[in-house]
Simulated scan of single mutants.
Amino acid sequence: MATPNTAPAIETGRIAQHRTYLMCRPEHFTVSYRINPWMEPANPTDTALAVRQWQSLYDTYIALGHDVHLIDPIEGLPDMVYTANGGFVIDGVAYGAKFRFQERVPEGPAFMEWFGENGFQVVDPVEVNEGEGDFLLVGSKVLAGTGFRSTGDSHRELRDVFGKEVVSLTLVDPRFYHLDTAIAVLDPVEGPGGVERANIAYLPHAFDEASRAVLEDLYPDAILVSDADGAVFGLNSASDGRNVIISPRAKGFEAQLRERGYTPVLVDLSELLLGGGGIKCCTLELRR
C-alpha cells in the first residue's frame, strides 16, 4: 500500500480533517459493456489485480485515520465499485442516484437501501443524476456537472434537497464524463476557526467556455492541471485537506500539490481505470 507522509501538519500549514467514506470491494469487476470511452470489452481485465489495487486504497484511508464503511458487491453489477456514483450525502441526508445507462440502473436502489439501513435520511431522485460523480461539495457551494450523465434538472432537484447554492458546469470532453474526473476538491469545507478556504484543481479543457469563466471567477487560486495528468485520471483524487491521494502517473499534478503544501499520497488504480474510474470514483464521502 502507499505509505502516507506523517510529518507534523505544522510544516505546511495544511490540516488533515477526518473523513468517512463508503467503498465497495470489486469482487465482480470486469468490463463487459461500453458506456464510456475508457471501457473496451475486448480487452481483458484482471479482477484479482483490481481487488489488490482497491485494497491498497482502502488501507491508505485507514492508515490516514479515516473511517471506511463497505457496501456488499452484487454479482452482475461490476461498476458498483465506483461508489461515488451511488448518491450524494450531506448532514445525514442521502440524495439517491438515478443512472443514465440501463447497465447501472440497479445500483441506485442498492445504494439507497444501504443508506436507509445505516441511518441516513434517503431522498429518492426524480431526475437522472450520478451522485458524487457529478456533485462536489466545495465549501458552502455544490459544483454540479452536466453534459454526459447527470441532467441539468438534477441540479435544481439537488438545490431543493439541500438548500445550498448549486453551480452548474458543462463538461464537453467525453473522456471526462463525470465532474470528479475533471475537478479535485483539495481543501476542507472549513479551516481553523470555521474560516472557509475551499479550493480546487481542475482541467480547463474539460469544460465549455462559460464554465471555465465561472471556475476562474470562483477559484482564482486553483491549480490548473495539464492534459497529460488529466488523461491518467490525476484529478480523480481524494483529499482530507492535507493528504491528497492521487494516481502515481500524474507527475505534474504531484509536483503542483507539493508546491502548494499538500502531501501527495500515490495509489495505483490502473486496473480500475479500464472501467473508467479512479480513486475518487471508488470513494463516496458520508457526511453526517
Rank of each mutant, 00 (worst) to 15 (best):
N85Y: 10
S270E: 11
L64P: 01
V267K: 09
Y262P: 00
G131I: 02
F99N: 08
A206K: 07
E40A: 06
T283H: 08
D240L: 03
Y219H: 07
L137E: 09
I15H: 02
L224G: 14
K280V: 09
S168N: 08
N5H: 11
I35S: 03
A184G: 01
F29P: 03
P106S: 04
P78F: 06
R19A: 12
I183R: 09
E75G: 10
L179V: 14
T60K: 00
T3V: 12
N236M: 13
A210G: 09
I35C: 03
V93L: 05
F101Q: 09
A213V: 05
Q121K: 15
E11F: 07
S226A: 15
R242N: 11
C24R: 03
N85G: 06
P109A: 07
L57A: 06
C281N: 07
A84W: 04
V81R: 03
R156A: 00
G86D: 06
R258N: 07
G65Q: 04
D67G: 08
L49H: 14
S237T: 01
H69Y: 07
V172I: 15
F176C: 11
G193Q: 13
N36G: 12
R156K: 07
V161K: 03
G139K: 13
Y202D: 01
G96E: 02
D221V: 01
R249L: 10
F99H: 01
H205Q: 15
G252W: 13
D221P: 10
E165F: 06
L70D: 06
L70Q: 05
D268A: 10
G86L: 01
V89S: 05
V123H: 09
L70T: 12
T12F: 12
L143E: 10
H205A: 14
L137Q: 00
M23E: 10
T170F: 04
F29K: 03
Q55E: 12
R258L: 11
E285A: 11
I183Y: 05
G86E: 00
T47R: 15
D124G: 08
L22M: 13
G234I: 10
A201Q: 08
T3E: 08
Q256C: 13
